[in-house]
């Protein structure tokens, strides 16, 4: 059953041009020129209950905008959106009690107060019963290992600790749907991993539906079976991560160890050199010619080891973005 349905969604921001300087300001007062930024431009998708879907795309792709529309913060320019059978923009309290939006760059915790103070306020705002509040808090605090920071002022916490407390504040009412916008941004590698483990575990334990945006491929690769790729407000791909490879990979990689002193020049005849650090070399070759190229490598060089690998997903996606066309 779909809990999120988005059909032909468009969100254009109207911005006005302003020329620099005082004269520019005056001119723009008298004669404002508006133009549209097409942040989201005709996107459709459906998400089922309990799915953990990754939204990826470069900066400015329209990920945050999409989540803001799904949360009812922004009024869509066109198309239709339904979340848990509600129109998000109506901001019906019954709907608002069933989801949470967490933005990595914004905080909802009271900066000068301990996180617990925000939790207590949220408990009232979301009408969480006492015993449920107690249980949920206990469970989340244990999962995220933050028992010792609950009574420390937020501004004295590390970014990682703060992010964990942001999550607790957002989850205290047990939302059915969770929108996570770049939850790992700025975190160190260890903390990123902890965050991912938590998200996975949360999704598994509570069967909640999660959309996660990121421009770190690792987040998505580890967590999400299904990915939605957007770029410049358009949907480039929607499906299993594995299918990206099948659909878009037109190269394979020959990873070889060469003995002796191989020449870069003659290696480039085998294919496009990805890395050249003898003995280890990596060469990209077209998918259709893998065997011929491998034979060429084996005959022209002294090969001690050879592997044929798929192109990494990061590279495929980066290529998708730079080409800017979906096939």
């Amino acid at each position: 059953m779909s809990v999120i349905e988005v059909a032909n969604l468009k969100k254009y921001y109207q911005v006005h041009e302003k020329e620099p300087g005082l004269w520019g300001s005056i001119k723009s007062l008298v004669n404002r020129k508006y133009y549209d930024v097409k942040a989201v431009d005709d996107i459709s998708f459906k998400i089922d209950e309990g799915e953990l879907v990754g939204f990826i795309g470069p900066n400015g792709a329209g990920k945050t905008t999409t989540l803001k529309v799904l949360s009812g913060l922004l009024y869509p320019t066109g198309g239709s959106v339904s979340v848990l059978s509600h129109n998000p923009y109506r901001r019906d309290p019954e709907f608002q009690k069933q989801f949470s939006l967490v933005m990595g760059q914004k905080n909802q915790l009271w900066w000068d107060l301990p996180p617990l103070e925000t939790f207590i306020l949220n408990k009232e705002i979301y009408e969480v019963p006492d015993d449920q509040y107690k249980n949920t808090l206990e469970e989340l605090v244990e999962m995220l290992e933050v028992a010792d920071v609950l009574k420390i002022q937020v501004r004295k916490l590390s970014l990682g600790q703060r992010m964990k407390c942001e999550l607790i504040a957002a989850l205290i009412h047990r939302p059915k749907i969770l929108f996570l916008d770049e939850p790992t941004i700025g975190l160190d590698v260890v903390m990123q991993k902890k965050m991912r483990d938590f998200i996975r575990e949360y999704n598994r334990r509570y069967k909640s539906t999660i959309i996660l945006t990121s421009h770190y491929m690792d987040d998505v690769k580890e967590l999400c079976e299904r990915v939605v790729v957007i770029d410049k407000g358009r949907l480039m791909f929607d499906g299993k991560l594995q299918e990206i490879i099948e659909k878009f990979a037109d190269h394979k990689r020959l990873v070889a160890d060469l003995s002796g002193t191989p020449s870069r020049q003659s290696l480039s005849e085998v294919g496009q050199i990805e890395s050249f650090e003898p003995p280890r070399v990596v060469v990209n070759v077209p998918r259709g010619q893998v065997s011929e190229r491998a034979v060429k490598l084996l005959t022209n060089f002294q090969v001690t080891d050879l592997n044929i690998e798929e192109e990494p997903i990061e590279d495929i996606i980066r290529r998708l973005f730079t080409q800017g066309t979906a096939s």
């Binding site: 803001k68 949360s71 009812g72 913060l73 901001r91 309290p93 019954e94 608002q96 009690k97 949470s100 939006l101 933005m103 914004k106 909802q108 705002i125 979301y126």
Partner: peptide
């Protein structure tokens, strides 16, 4: 500052 987001998200 965009903190108004938080205001709009809460069921009050």
């Amino acid at each position: 500052r965009g903190t108004f987001d938080g205001v709009l998200l809460r069921p009050v």
